[in-house]
């Protein structure tokens, strides 16, 4: 069975050690975490963890069950399907030689992202969007030379029914 990307989002108790329980479950059972994002919700006692993992069907079922079994996981949802909005943000530091500067700005414009820092030799670009958009942008910038990149990992929310 083929491994597929899954975005799991969970509400967890906002307490020390909780993240380590979640992460320990992955390392202890040999599952892989592709990206991970944690921050408090509007309820200060609850945090949201969004986690992207690659797994085949039986494995993802087991991962989800194991996560639900953790005492500090309040709620878990697989947001890989259509009914969710998914976004990721990245800061990309790209080499900006004089001959490339115009081209970079054109790409930035087309992708509706922003230049947030300009130097003699570089731009830092801020981009947000779904993961495909980020990958496409990164591919286009690669030939100019990407010096550094920081991605937040995906966050996602279930779309409210109308």
């Amino acid at each position: 069975m083929n491994a597929e990307k899954h975005i799991l989002t969970m509400l967890v108790d906002n307490q020390p050690g909780v993240l380590s329980r979640v992460v320990g479950l992955f390392s202890g059972r040999g599952y892989n975490i592709e990206s991970l994002c944690v921050a408090p919700t509007i309820d200060p006692l609850v945090s949201r963890i969004t986690l992207v993992t690659n797994a085949n069907l039986p494995a993802i079922e087991q991962i989800e069950k194991q996560l639900r079994k953790l005492i500090n996981v309040i709620k878990l949802r697989d947001l890989s399907g259509k009914e969710a909005v998914r976004r990721e943000m990245a800061l990309i530091c790209v080499k900006a030689k004089p001959e490339n500067r115009a081209e970079i700005l054109r790409i930035v414009d087309i992708f509706r992202c922003k230049v947030v820092d300009i130097g003699l030799e570089h731009y830092i670009i801020e981009v947000s969007g779904d993961m495909d958009k980020l990958d496409a942008l990164i591919n286009l910038l690669k030939p100019m030379g990407i010096k550094k990149i920081a991605r937040t990992g995906a966050v996602a929310l279930f779309r409210e029914p109308n």
């Binding site: 020390p16 050690g17 380590s20 329980r21 320990g24 479950l25 202890g28 005492i71």
Partner: peptide, 14 residues
Amino acid sequence: IVGITRPCTKHNYL
């Protein structure tokens, strides 16, 4: 000890 026993307890507390 909470870190050490995390994977072999049902739950643990400090």
